[in-house]
């Protein structure tokens, strides 16, 4: 029987590829017996769902929506673009 560590790793792997059937069977068997691993699987799926929305959400309303290019970087990029424009 798989250990909890192996099961957790295979649950994570199943988010990235389809596991071979015998692995899926071993994972399903372990999950049916282990409350903590079942909970862990639910939390991995929760995390996956959160990450799918993450970029949209941080763009929408995170405090660091105030994060901006530094004045130095802005001025450097502006100068570089100006130079490139002048030399073309």
């Amino acid at each position: 029987m798989l250990t909890c560590r192996e099961t957790s790793k295979l649950v994570s792997e199943s988010l990235d590829r389809k596991l071979p059937w015998h692995r899926r069977l071993s994972v399903a068997f372990h999950l049916s017996m282990c409350r903590l691993c079942s909970r862990n699987k639910g939390q991995m799926l929760f995390l996956g769902a959160a990450l799918k929305r993450y970029c949209r959400e941080i763009e929408k309303h995170l405090p660091d929506a105030e994060v901006t290019l530094s004045p130095e970087a802005r001025s450097r990029i502006r100068d570089l673009l100006q130079d490139t424009e002048n030399s073309s």
Binding site: C4, L36, A49, Y54, E57, L62
Partner: peptide
């Protein structure tokens, strides 16, 4: 290979968590 500290239960409904901007 056993859980040293197992996962604690989380809120049942993800949508209620996703609606809270502090979560992000």
């Amino acid at each position: 290979g056993r859980w040293r500290v197992g996962p604690a239960p989380w809120a049942k409904n993800p949508e209620t968590v996703f609606e809270q901007k502090e979560f992000w």
